[in-house]
Design a binder for these strands. Structure first.
Length: 193
DNA sequence: GTATGGATGGACT
DNA sequence: GTCCATCCATACT
């Protein structure tokens, strides 16, 4: 599908991140996410919230998940399987909720991302939460940082997008909860819906 | 103090 | 489809 956009986009404000986490996860599809100017359009997200057994916030605040209990509109970055980094956007009217960024359609800084990922394949640059962080250079150094300031930039979607939704990926708890959202038909999803 | 297992991705059969 | 690299917070002894 086309990703061309010419209209200027607004930076996402505090109100965006205060909406219910599932609404935020849906509304983030089509938003342009960059870190130091490198990134693309968000095409896949998952929602996690406080009372959700699959969420890192489920057992309450700890040192490592503290960002999830901070104000919305900030990043929560964690290490996954000892190898990868995963980026969440803290969202919602209540503390302890966040949206996992699972895939982007790469648009900005393609050569930087190709070098970081070690592949020329556009479809594989940002397909999966670990890949997104590798391509964008996201590590724990960005944990807790506000999303409306550099190096982050989040620009509102240019139009409405058709949304697919389904169950979340890779979980052992909360496996039935259909809180995975994606751009329907996008070739840049980590997996089809 | 020690064991465990996870919101993964890539290599391989 | 299966396997497993590699970190570290948490659970358990």
């Amino acid at each position: 599908m086309s990703s061309v956009l010419s209209a200027p986009r607004a930076v996402l404000g505090a109100d965006f991140f205060r909406q219910a986490v599932t609404e935020a996860a849906r509304a983030l599809i089509g938003v342009r996410l960059t870190v130091d100017g490198v990134g693309g359009l968000i095409v896949e997200t998952e929602a996690y919230e406080r009372t959700d057994p699959a969420s890192h916030a489920y057992r309450g605040p700890t040192l490592s998940n503290a960002a999830m209990f901070g104000p919305p509109g900030h990043a929560y970055v964690y290490r996954s399987y000892g190898i990868h980094w995963c980026l969440n956007l803290v969202c919602g009217p209540e503390a302890g909720a966040a949206v996992l960024i699972r895939a982007l359609e790469p648009t900005d800084g393609l050569e930087v991302m190709r070098a970081r990922r070690g592949t020329e394949n556009l479809r594989k640059l940002c397909a999966g939460p670990g890949s997104v962080c590798q391509a964008l250079g996201i590590t724990r150094a960005l944990n807790g940082l506000p999303l409306d300031q550099p190096p982050f930039e989040l620009l509102a979607r240019a139009r409405e997008y058709p949304i697919a939704n389904g169950v979340r990926i890779g979980l052992t708890k909360g496996v039935e909860t259909p809180w995975r959202f994606g751009l329907r038909g996008s070739p840049f999803l980590s997996r089809p819906f």
